[in-house]
Design a protein around this nucleic acid. Sequence first.
DNA 1: TTGAAAGCGCTAACAA
DNA 2: TTGTTAGCGCTTTCAA
Lengths: 339, 339
Amino acid sequence: MAVTIVDVAKRAGVSPSTVSRVISGHPRISPATVNKVKEIMADMGYHPNVMAKSLVSKTTSTIGIVLPRPAEELFQNMFFPEVIRGIVTHSSRTSYDLLMATGVTEREELEAVIRLVKGRRVDGLLLLHSRKRDPLVNFLREEHFPFVLVGRSEEHADILSVDNDNVQASYDATRHLISQGHRRIGFVSGPPNLVVSMDRLAGYRQALAEAGLASSPEWIVEGEFLQESGYQAMSFFMSLPERPTAIVVIDDLVGFGVLRGLTELGFKVPQDLGIIGFNNTPMAELATPPLSSVDIGIYQIGYTASQMLIRRIKGEKTMQPRAVIPHRLVVRESSLPPV
Amino acid sequence: MAVTIVDVAKRAGVSPSTVSRVISGHPRISPATVNKVKEIMADMGYHPNVMAKSLVSKTTSTIGIVLPRPAEELFQNMFFPEVIRGIVTHSSRTSYDLLMATGVTEREELEAVIRLVKGRRVDGLLLLHSRKRDPLVNFLREEHFPFVLVGRSEEHADILSVDNDNVQASYDATRHLISQGHRRIGFVSGPPNLVVSMDRLAGYRQALAEAGLASSPEWIVEGEFLQESGYQAMSFFMSLPERPTAIVVIDDLVGFGVLRGLTELGFKVPQDLGIIGFNNTPMAELATPPLSSVDIGIYQIGYTASQMLIRRIKGEKTMQPRAVIPHRLVVRESSLPPV
DNA sequence: TTGAAAGCGCTAACAA
DNA sequence: TTGTTAGCGCTTTCAA
């Protein structure tokens, strides 16, 4: 069957350990044997059995990501493809493979993680979003298993994580709308158990408070990261007796839902409602009107997360636990002054 | 350290082989010991070491995908996230993990595959696009390694593959433009070494020929699956003395590039140029005007590919090698009659 | 129904 | 500089 290290050793007239040493670039080994062995390996088409190596070295050269629950819902939004792109770019540069696991229910998700961790299937794990009191986080901490959180942990400051300053980002977005002359500003949020939802809501509130503007509970709506949610939020807002003149939307995709709804109902953007979203999706530029958005550097988030994780795996200690990726306001037509 | 099968065996007062049998659901084993062992496993938090198991069973419960070369370029287009969504949905339902590897150059790509295959790292492989005379295909065939091709192999009819009838799909799209009254129809293709580019070009030509319409070489442009390519193709077409009145575009993303360019230059769609794309990206609906597109069932392609691969891995033999996913014309404003 | 023993392919002491 | 040996944690004959 497949060529093993023993086959190579025999053909080369050396011991398996010598071959092993050649493979791992052991320093003290004669150039002559190195050459001979390498030649024979190439000649025989030898490739080390990854599992055997892992078993003894207790290391896999693989990092895992656990896809947030309904994989169905996941890729609608460009966020995940884009983080994954960042992750895979970095991890492949450092010769790590990427394993994707998924659990549909919360329980399955935890079980998948346990299997990966206890089964020693991966060297580290990337958590793609942060929830309040996340059981995964607790488990991984207890196990002292290397992991990096995309987002921010509320309860543990020492966790490795990469995030935006979402409070500030949302603050900036809201300030922008205020500077355009808006006084009644709404907010379309994401699932309330996600830290990102909280942070962006906080930034929004902070900006309003600072400007001495009122916020009505009616102007804050929660939903999913889906177009549908935007559509619903829009219906709700536009039927209000005193409706907002502009809104901050937690995600471009949700913003597109708003846009579509407004168009259907014959409203004009930004005249009837100013909009600014998050993520600066490629689509944002193409929408009608082009959608203003906060670019949060998703690719870079993924890249950095992989970087931190692999450093952690390799045992680097001198690391600040929290990386903050800068954001950037991209103003387009959808948030120009209403006049 | 981690709990092993031996630890469990000791605590249960049985041999490791007995524990192994309990785990694998061996039929001839007393219910009493089964219960006892299971209890102890749960109690000790035992989880089998995946590597050790793989080493002896020569199976990994993992399927691999090799990301087409520049991962950079990959996720711009919704095609890959969407196939992956299909793949991951099916594979996780059947308890397979998904390993993503990538190579930047063609050579690296092949090396990654060799490493996965010869290193026995995955049980099977999914190839995400088909090129003419693909060295990966040749290698995998020689190795008799389970793999499924997304797309179509020109040279080998026996290869497991899942594809659309791209000739027909493109034929349909072109027919549609003809039926809207267009007589001068152009085609924006993808990289010429991809089978999908050829097939769609063939369908386009066939429709024109059948309708007795001329096609000029000037009306056929090749590019990448990127907005940029659409933009360039558009500039080219619109500067032609006798330019097409409508175009078939190999991919929505490319179509968006065309759209954007036309808007910038002050042209109107569909009045100045009718457009129909492929993939029916979520964006297509949101573009201005909404983009007509051929829905090719990308999610289903991924799902089916995973299904075929895992069947093949499990040794099922009664399988037609080629699955064809149906396509569907989605007509929107961008291809309405030019009048 | 259960156990003992061998071995999957590799690495890493310890010797030589 | 190289070889010998003993495992890594698991499965699987073969015997009992």
